[in-house]
């Protein structure tokens, strides 16, 4: 019966891909494809090289070179013009010797001397570290519970974790204004429940920044943790149980150490962007909150001091290079392991 039905009507997947294949085959014979191939071949560029070159050149041009320019401008002096910085190399006369090099380390000295920047750095790192820890404490049990659910439920539950991540980040931060306000949801609830008599100021405090970061970045913590915990070999836990190990001890001696790559990946995914976070402290934090992302924003947009903003960016980057490289190594290892 099924066989007959199958012959009469090919499965949808096959029909669909037959159409697509026809389209792709036609594409191969269209003039631009042939023409491009011939043209590239004449220049000695083979298809393979072209495939590597496209993403490579794009990222070089729009990701790597921009950092070199930021570095360059962080050493220039401010000047009232558009763009508001002095060129590093200047021809003052007509002879070659009149080339002047305007290197100005003053921006970095300024960052070092004005204690505002140092405090902003320390504060950002502290806020990011505390938020990362809270995210881990909420995210780990959640990822663990999902990874140990039945196979049928796992997909649905993970989709439910990822869904908020797809909806607007800005609007999710905005939702917390309504919750944390003096006459907001949380205060109203606590007064109704009799825990407090009058509203507690929560908005525009560091507490609000923690909540915002934890809430926005929770999916980034749960995803790598889940991927790790789901793959774990459960027979190890059974063996521990057979040998008389208590579940609590098995968790701390087996599950937790084995899930460390997931913990590290999740913490990096939260910590690194949180250090430079701008939206959350500016919407939920105290008006004078010293977060380095906000300081950079103010230097650039309010003070229009591009060189100092660039120096702040370079300083932040130098600080973040270690965790970023660490994250990349871990990422590359995971990709390699997946391929093997």
């Amino acid at each position: 019966m099924t066989q007959h039905h199958r012959q009469a009507q090919p499965p949808q997947g096959e029909r669909l891909s037959a159409g697509v294949q026809l389209m792709l085959r036609a594409l191969q014979h269209l003039p631009p494809y042939r023409w491009t191939q011939a043209r590239l071949a004449r220049w000695g560029v083979r298809g393979r090289t072209a495939v590597v070159a496209l993403p490579y050149l794009w990222l070089l041009l729009f990701f790597l070179i921009p950092f070199v320019i930021v570095l360059k401008i962080s050493f220039s002096a401010t000047q009232l013009s558009m763009p508001p910085y002095q060129p590093l190399l200047q021809w003052t006369g007509e002879k070659l010797t009149s080339l002047r090099l305007n290197i100005n380390p003053g921006n970095y000295l300024y960052l070092w001397q004005d204690s505002l920047y140092g405090r902003a750095f320390v504060n950002s790192i502290q806020v990011a570290a505390v938020s990362t820890l809270i995210t881990l404490l909420i995210g780990y049990p959640l990822a663990y519970a999902i990874a140990r659910s039945s196979t049928k439920w796992r997909g649905v539950l993970m989709m439910m974790v990822i869904l908020p991540f797809w909806t607007s980040f800005l609007l999710r931060v905005y939702a917390w204004i309504g919750i944390l306000k003096n006459n907001g949801l949380l205060n109203n609830f606590l007064i109704w429940a009799g825990v407090i008599d009058e509203p507690v100021v929560m908005l525009q405090t560091n507490f609000a920044v923690y909540m915002g970061i934890v809430y926005s970045y929770l999916p980034f913590m749960v995803m790598p943790l889940y991927a790790n915990l789901e793959k774990m070999d459960l027979t190890l836990l059974e063996a521990a149980k057979d040998l008389g190990c208590r579940p609590m001890r098995a968790f701390f001696n087996i599950t937790l150490p084995l899930s460390m790559p997931g913990v590290v990946a999740g913490c990096m995914l939260v910590f690194i962007p949180a250090v430079g976070e701008f939206v959350i402290p500016s919407l939920l934090g105290p008006p004078d909150s010293l977060m380095i992302g906000k300081v950079l924003w103010t230097e650039f947009f309010n003070n229009r001091d591009w060189p100092v903003a660039s120096a702040v960016a370079i300083a932040l980057l130098i600080f973040l290079v270690v965790p970023i490289v660490y994250f990349q190594r871990a990422q590359a290892r995971t990709a390699q392991a997946g391929q093997a």
């Binding site: 041009l61 729009f62 790597l64 990096m268 992302g293 932040l316 990422q331």
Partner: peptide
Amino acid sequence: MLSAMTTAPLVMPDVITGLSLLLMFVA
């Protein structure tokens, strides 16, 4: 290098990416 350039933007703070791209466009 390619692998590094494709994973770094995932965690790079937005303010740094935004500033560097703007300076690139101006240049």
